[in-house]
């Protein structure tokens, strides 16, 4: 199930990026995540499976995404970057969840509201879960996406 969900997540990420940002992110090989200042979006998953969706980029990419979502206009406040990233993450997780519900008809997936973390040397860990890592590159920058569930739901 996890492999199928990873493919669904990859599809959702790419579709939403194109529809919302009019920019393509291509999945590819693993890259070293050396962003000095990271922005991370964490969306909890409950229901038929317990887990979480995690998206990460550097601050520069986050600002570029936010500016596009603000239609090229200057952001009213610097913190708006995080509001827009949360919305971006929400759309990706919503799209992925829709596809997951369509694929696994006897299962229900619910999402918690996005939580955004930013910081220097940010590291995250969800010890209980087994996950698939996805790496995307595009003209706006790089995104690391990780979708995972607790072992009993694999």
């Amino acid at each position: 199930m996890l492999r199928e969900i990873a493919l669904i997540t990859e599809k959702a990420f790419q579709e939403v990026s194109i529809e919302l940002l009019e920019t393509e992110f291509l999945p590819g090989k693993r890259f070293i995540i050396d962003f000095p200042f990271k922005v991370a979006i964490i969306i909890g998953i409950t229901g038929s499976a317990t887990g979480r969706l995690y998206l990460e980029c550097d601050l520069e990419t986050a600002v570029k995404v936010a500016l596009i979502m603000n239609f090229g206009e200057r952001l009213d406040e610097p913190n708006d970057v995080y509001t827009y990233l949360a919305e971006f993450g929400n759309m990706i997780s919503g799209r992925a969840t829709t596809y997951m519900t369509d694929k696994f008809k006897n299962k229900e997936f619910r999402l918690s509201p996005p939580a955004i973390f930013s910081g220097k040397g940010l590291e995250t860990l969800s010890p209980r879960i087994k996950s698939k890592m996805l790496y995307f590159r595009g003209k706006l920058g790089k995104f690391f996406v990780d979708i995972g569930f607790e072992e009993e739901h694999q």
């Binding site: 929400n90 759309m91 997780s93 919503g94 799209r95 969840t97 829709t98 519900t101 369509d102 999402l111």
Partner: peptide
Amino acid sequence: KIIMLSAMGD
């Protein structure tokens, strides 16, 4: 007249 918007489309 309402148009409902959602990130989820189930």
